[in-house]
Design a protein around this nucleic acid. Structure first.
Length: 679
DNA sequence: GAGTTTGAAACT
DNA sequence: CAGTTTCAAACTC
């Protein structure tokens, strides 16, 4: 039978003879041509299975995971609808918008694969971005959506995209330009920059920004009230056929690309700057972008602000939009907020839609609809005069806005009109200076422009956390060094970023409402304990060893009841309290009243043994302090202590060498009694 | 709005 | 690398 089949395959018999036969069908099913469609599968695998790099480094892949979650909302039906609308050719802009959304989605996947497949990014950075865009557009395999794709949808997408491309070739519509710019933007993001750090930053930022952009591109710029009404009960990104006014968006993105290439389009910039003299806010807004990062931060800021407000004020569309113009305190924070909000939105369809729908609008309006923009600006000023717009506003006097003192500069955006800076050089007209300074700073500190807050890519942590609360796994990269603010004011970068303090922090008397450092450390220890316990449970021999060795400060001792209240910390535990609650509960005044005392106690270098031996009846206060004690013992100078250090040093058995975030999730009370010989 | 406090950034 | 200075945001009044 096999031989006969092979013969049939190998023999060039007339097709008509067999094509109706079951054997032929079977052979067709065996055709390797179908097997070629493995690319989407690969993508799916990539997006689901690849572990993320250590959180110390910004993780574009980790972000991609979330993006994929975000994009999951683009189901085939929606895509079909979009393509139907394309075929109807209702509006060229709409087509472009839809296509852009699809392309962005797929570009992302393609680029991700490229990143993972190749160590160098030169390919992406190669000139001819437009060609790459075309390639993406015309490459069904690359375009094929992952997971859900079937042949028809994939083909539809490619066909639709080709139509779009052809139409755009015929008339160079703004949408076309924008499409190209969108792709170029992504490519620029992937371009190796002045330093690895910058690339790292770009990855981080761009990932979030792209997430935002996806919403933007798939969002229609229609009446605000309509938006809200129509948004109810719609999944994310269910509006692919809605139109976004792309004209200015395109130009803005393009500017970002231009910025990225030093001097490439300086003339444009200069022209824009001249136009900026007119001081249209929309213009200046689009102007406050510094190479690469700036635009994204702006977008993120706007997005997050919009999301944030929208989530709260779902019932007031006007207010939402108006507030959406408001900038955020820090880009990173916005990023986190947005991410969380998006997470939450996924779980709450109603909100999710609002988030998806409202978020991009500010951008569109700001760029396009100047009339409404001005009105909204007026209202905004009335409502929240203190808040900035999408761009940061600095007040630099001496730094010329060319140092990291300047928030604008540090955030990678140009200063704009609302800034009160003096002698500002952080302007597009001084692009050379800006870039040179950036390079200089990066040479000194490659991570100078990297996001200060990094996210733990651990999906478990993030998914188990309530999005409405503090960032589950976000942490300040370098940590704070607060001495007097107790990490309770915005002086503290951790607090300002809305993240808890971590082991990287050298703060004293940390009371960070988003998560205290000691709690963080305690969680690490706890996780290690639980890990050891689980090991012990799996290996009775080990358990015996532990029991027979009471002198060792082993965590095998049953955890006391107070673990329930103490151990669960807001930013790590699934059952964590909201920041405030946590602070008042686990970190209440009675719980850790004298932070100064705490600091002193730490400096007294309590022996680690105290931690383990006292834990059975220790007061929560002491317990909560003990980790710090441990750390202090390791680093009496309050200097940064690296996690591995803890694990390998005197606290070795307790913390262990492998303390990743995931373990922190496993904070429920395990079957400790089984390890207790008295029970 | 002016002055103070604070901690990061920059400098030595 | 540690200590000091500079700086601008955050905060207070």
């Amino acid at each position: 039978m096999d031989n006969s089949q092979k013969k049939k395959i190998e023999t060039p018999t007339p097709k008509s003879k067999f094509e109706d036969s079951p054997v032929f069908n079977y052979i067709n099913n065996l055709s390797p041509i179908e097997a070629v469609r493995s690319i989407p599968t690969v993508q799916t695998f990539n997006s689901l299975s690849f572990t993320s790099p250590p959180p110390v480094f910004t993780s574009p892949h980790a972000s991609f995971h979330r993006e994929s979650r975000f994009f999951r909302c683009h189901n085939s039906v929606e895509r079909s609808k979009a393509l139907e609308s394309l075929d109807r050719s209702v509006s060229t802009q709409e087509e472009v918008v839809v296509a852009s959304g699809e392309v962005d989605l797929n570009k992302e996947a393609t680029l991700e694969d490229q990143e993972e497949d190749e160590t160098s990014r030169d390919r992406v950075d190669s000139p001819g971005t437009g060609d790459i865009v075309t390639q993406v557009l015309l490459d069904p395999s690359g375009v094929a959506p992952q997971g859900e794709d079937n042949a028809s949808s994939s083909e539809d997408v490619s066909v639709g995209l080709r139509k779009i491309l052809d139409a755009q070739k015929e008339n160079d519509t703004p949408g076309c330009r924008r499409l190209m710019a969108d792709a170029a933007e992504l490519l620029v993001f992937r371009s190796p920059n002045d330093s690895e750090a910058f690339g790292c930053l770009v990855d981080k930022i761009s990932s979030s920004e792209r997430r935002f952009c996806a919403g933007v591109k798939l969002t229609k710029r229609h009446d605000i009230t309509k938006d809200v009404q129509a948004n109810d009960n719609q999944p994310l990104a269910v509006v692919p056929n809605q139109s976004v006014s792309n004209l200015h968006r395109g130009s803005m993105r393009r500017r970002c690309l231009d910025f990225e290439v030093l001097g490439k389009r300086k003339k444009d910039i200069a022209d824009d700057d001249q136009q900026a003299v007119g001081d249209n806010k929309a213009e200046s807004s689009s102007k406050c972008v510094v190479p690469g990062i700036g635009l994204h931060l702006n977008a993120i800021a706007m997005a997050s602000r919009g999301i944030k407000i929208n989530t709260i004020h779902e019932d007031s569309a006007t207010v939402e939009i108006q507030k959406s113009f408001l900038g955020s305190t820090t880009p990173v924070q916005s990023q986190d907020i947005m991410r969380e909000t998006l997470d939450q939105a996924e779980n709450e369809p109603g909100k999710g839609l609002a988030v998806e729908e409202e978020t991009p609008k500010p951008l569109v309006f700001e760029e396009l609809n100047q009339d409404s923009l001005q009105k909204k600006k007026q209202v905004r000023k009335v409502e929240e005069p203190g808040e900035g717009d999408s761009c940061k506003r600095c007040n630099c006097k001496k730094s010329k806005c060319l140092k990291l003192y300047c928030e604008c500069f540090a955030a990678g955006v140009y200063c704009i009109e609302p800034c009160s800076c003096v002698d500002c050089f952080n302007r597009p007209i001084h692009e050379d200076t800006v870039l040179a300074t950036r390079k200089q700073i990066e040479s000194r500190n490659p991570l100078a422009f990297a996001p200060k807050v990094i996210r733990n890519s651990d999906s478990i942590m993030e998914t188990t956390d309530d999005a409405s609360k503090t960032p589950a796994s976000a942490r300040h990269k370098r940590g704070c060094n607060c001495k007097k603010s107790n990490c309770l004011k915005k002086y503290c970068e951790c607090f300002q970023s809305g993240v808890g303090c971590s082991i990287n922090c050298r703060c004293e008397g940390c009371k960070n409402a988003f998560g205290k450092k000691d709690a963080y450390l305690l969680a690490i220890m706890e996780s290690k304990q639980e890990e050891d316990l689980s090991k012990v449970q799996q290996n009775p021999n080990l358990s015996k060893e532990v029991e027979q060795n009471p002198s060792s400060d082993q965590p095998s001792t049953p955890l006391p009841p107070y673990r329930h209240t103490v151990v669960h910390q807001p930013f790590l535990s699934k059952n964590r309290l909201p920041p405030t609650q946590f602070f008042l509960g686990a970190g209440s005044s009675s719980f850790r009243k004298p932070d100064g005392d705490l600091t002193q106690a730490r400096n007294e270098k309590k022996p680690l043994e105290t931690v383990a031996e006292d834990k059975t009846e220790i007061m929560p206060e002491i317990l909560s302090n003990t980790p710090i004690t441990t750390i202090k013992a390791i680093s009496p100078n309050s200097k940064r202590v690296s996690p591995p250090h803890i694990g390998s040093s005197e606290s070795g058995p307790i913390i262990g060498k492998r303390t990743n975030g995931r373990k922190l999730i496993l904070r429920s009370i395990p079957a400790f009694p089984s390890l207790n010989p008295n029970q």
